[in-house]
């Protein structure tokens, strides 16, 4: 059943990913002052969204793991952290591409930039703590770290925000400051990236599961 679901997701993505690219480049209008550079926004925001979503998944499954100690839950947390790191890296790479022509600098210590960078560091630390062939202890300790680092995210954000802010606020409490066509492209990106995340996650969880089975089988053969 899960096999079917995963391959179905793959086929949906085979259709949606090119469609998303089409919407971004042909349907959504070119921004008046920034020009074509603005297109990076759709990838940038979608990756950032997945990065956060993945971190929430790490947090929730860490709590669940400490509670019920199921291997399944830990695999979900670890896979989510790995995929989140990749997407956060995407955000951190696409940001400067846009910022250099628009802000005239590659990097600045804006709250969102700072928070994203710290988030990346915490993800990497989490993965390092959990390690490759994780033992029971490492899984438990990584879960604890997954929880505290999540608590830390809002603190990083608000402290950096108090300090300074120049990042454009596109989505705010008063609605979205975007052309309707651009808005559609943004939501298309968010949706497609979310599906991509779900697909990668299920794939990664499965490989982790298989790795563990190989370990068990090998131990049986050896003995």
């Amino acid at each position: 059943m899960r096999q079917v679901r995963t391959s179905l997701l793959l086929w949906v993505l085979v259709v949606l990913l090119p469609l998303n690219i089409y919407i971004i480049f042909n349907y959504a209008p070119v921004e008046k002052t920034m020009g074509v550079v603005q297109k990076v926004f759709y990838f940038h925001v979608a990756s950032a969204w997945i990065g956060l979503l993945a971190f929430v998944v790490v947090f929730l499954s860490s709590i669940l793991y400490l509670w019920n100690r199921e291997e399944r839950v830990n695999r979900l947390a670890f896979a989510s952290a790995e995929i989140g790191t990749i997407f956060i890296s995407g955000t951190l790479l696409t940001g400067p591409l846009w910022a250099y022509p628009i802000w005239n600098t590659w990097w600045t210590w804006d709250p969102r930039l700072t928070t994203t960078l710290v988030l990346w560091f915490m993800y990497v630390a989490y993965i390092a703590l959990q390690g490759g062939g994780a033992t029971e202890t490492r899984k438990r300790l990584a879960a604890v770290y997954g929880i505290i680092s999540f608590i830390n995210v809002p603190l990083v954000f608000f402290s950096a925000r108090w300090w300074r802010s120049i990042h454009p606020i596109v989505v705010s409490g008063e609605g979205i400051g975007l052309d309707p066509k651009m808005r559609l492209a943004m939501f298309a990106s968010l949706g497609t990236f979310s599906l991509l995340y779900a697909y990668l996650l299920s794939l990664r969880v499965k490989t982790l599961e298989l790795q563990e089975r190989i370990k068990v089988l090998r131990a049986e053969v050896d003995s």
């Binding site: 703590l129 390690g131 830390n152 603190l155 990083v156 402290s159 300090w163």
Partner: peptide, 21 residues
């Protein structure tokens, strides 16, 4: 965690960012 001394600063510094500011 045996042989994970280096992990200590790696785990610690990201958490300390708000404090540092």
């Amino acid at each position: 965690i045996p042989s994970a001394r280096l992990l200590f600063p790696i785990l610690m510094f990201p958490l300390l960012v708000p404090l540092l500011i």
